[in-house]
Design a protein around this nucleic acid. Sequence first.
DNA 1: CCACATTGGCGGAACGTTCCTTCAACCCTA
DNA 2: TAGGGTTGAAGGAACGTTCCGCCAATGTGG
Lengths: 331, 331
Amino acid sequence: MNESRPITLQDVARAAGVSKTTVSDALSGRGRLPAATRERVAAIARELGYVANRSARNLRGGRTGAIGLYFPARTIGLEYYMDLAIGAAEEALAHDLALTLIPAPADPGRTPPPHIDGVMVSDPVLGDPMLGTLTDLRVPVVTCERDLTPGARHAGRVESDHRAGTRTLLDHLSGRGDHIALLCPGEETSFGLDIRTAYRAWCADNGREALVYDVPFVCDPEDVNHAVAEALRAPGGVGAIVSVPDGGATSAVHAALQQGRHVPADLLVASYVDSPSLRGLATPITAVDIAPREMGRRAARLLAGILAGHVAPGTVEILPTELMIRASTSH
Amino acid sequence: MNESRPITLQDVARAAGVSKTTVSDALSGRGRLPAATRERVAAIARELGYVANRSARNLRGGRTGAIGLYFPARTIGLEYYMDLAIGAAEEALAHDLALTLIPAPADPGRTPPPHIDGVMVSDPVLGDPMLGTLTDLRVPVVTCERDLTPGARHAGRVESDHRAGTRTLLDHLSGRGDHIALLCPGEETSFGLDIRTAYRAWCADNGREALVYDVPFVCDPEDVNHAVAEALRAPGGVGAIVSVPDGGATSAVHAALQQGRHVPADLLVASYVDSPSLRGLATPITAVDIAPREMGRRAARLLAGILAGHVAPGTVEILPTELMIRASTSH
DNA sequence: CCACATTGGCGGAACGTTCCTTCAACCCTA
DNA sequence: TAGGGTTGAAGGAACGTTCCGCCAATGTGG
């Protein structure tokens, strides 16, 4: 029953008959030590089960050893963000950083600032007061997607190429000559903004009328029903519907059915955000894979690189998207 | 441009004309100080924007200031776990603890142990090697649901009353006299085990045949299709299907439709795990709300209490479930 | 054989907190 | 007024690490 305190550098030093400086240098690769000494000390450390105390290391180094991940409140519950968080945690771990989850504060006024070396914001939403709070921490901020706040400048950014994704999806749907309706969240995120912009541009280029219907970011079936009903009444006829939000497309299929339209025979339906639940349907729904896991990984890697000093602040990475064609648009 | 180092206790002490001990005592409520001094020091600290350095505090106190949350790999992507994580993060923050996400290790052998004071395991899976790794950290472990590993004893546990939830759901579905099929994940989690057990007991009590079909924890529509087809062929007739996994029920509805059965006129379908996507359907699906957010909160609170010493190790909390009746079972 | 550079390693300060010990000043009572 | 108890506050060690500066021993060239 070895109920003893944890092994410290000092313990290893004693066991190895050297000073704690030597142990520290040997294990970290710093200092001027012959390989023989390094190996000997490392072997003893391993044998004793030494594991460095992070608090001490962090105190000495003036860091916290953690990076944060913030989700705006409205995004909670979407599978997308779960995947992103896991990707970020994996990558952070690989860089010897802990991933701390930062919930949207119930009390927007005073919430204790987290103790972190940097923070990732997944899908900054225009007007979210938490953005200011995080910026005030004076630590590097990496955003997933762009922050539309005027004048906002962050240490780094990873963004999906939603304009290309939108064009690819629309090209895929353009087989029928009639209009394509877009059910899309608003322009308070670059996600919504880019999709809308690309959609309008595509419509202009292809001589189609742009039919945009507002739906909230987190899908409410009532709104989808309403938007679908309205879209199907559009003059000129609608041959395809793109529902952007995660989960909206299933509602759109049902709403269309209620309007007497069959998918895909009668009407094409696609989602923009892909999710496992779209694959599981009797008629699986075409969607754009925006690779949340990879997004989380990239953001964490970028932030870790900035913190370590070998990535220039201001770096922007673009993540490609991939169209997943399924039965709901096969024609 | 105040590009200075952070304010320390010493800085506050100088500004207030007292010692750092006095500042520490004043801010923490310890020591013997008159209220006047406490307030004066606190005011100065606030004015200077003092915020305690966690690394130093943790080093001194021998803690890490963080608790971990581990999800087994198979659970990734489910909305349930996202909600649970957010709940846990909120509650941890309220106890001045950071919530560190622990991903399932890609390399099951050697992964650097996280630096945490305690850990929550959401849905321990029998045979997961990570359970042993976490136990070896010698920090309190709180599980969400029971750990079925023989001899496993943890510091605390929060569990949903799935047996009651199952009975309530079955009672609700029992209006029709014919059989109720259960699509359920295996018995490697207490979740699957309890639902199966309760189901069998209920069937025995109510003179119905038990029809259990294995489906994986993360829903694969093919498996659901197969299971539904098989269930509907069962002699004696099936009047209702309960699909346990998150997301399985939508596949079940479609599979049933393909077999020529209509929901709810012809067949009742319910999910066990509730999720927003079940509400969004043309025919919303009845489910049991197992309150993931609250589960996360409770687990974090329990762990924080154990760490603080005012909750006895071994405490078990039971979380009630609530049946959400929707159109898919209205009869 | 001396001057000097290099190698290998050690001592100790510093990071910012908490907490144990000490101590001066004060008040009361005998 | 001496003695003891209480109050208010300070000093300093300790937590475990990193890293700067120093030093002894060893090589190296003239």
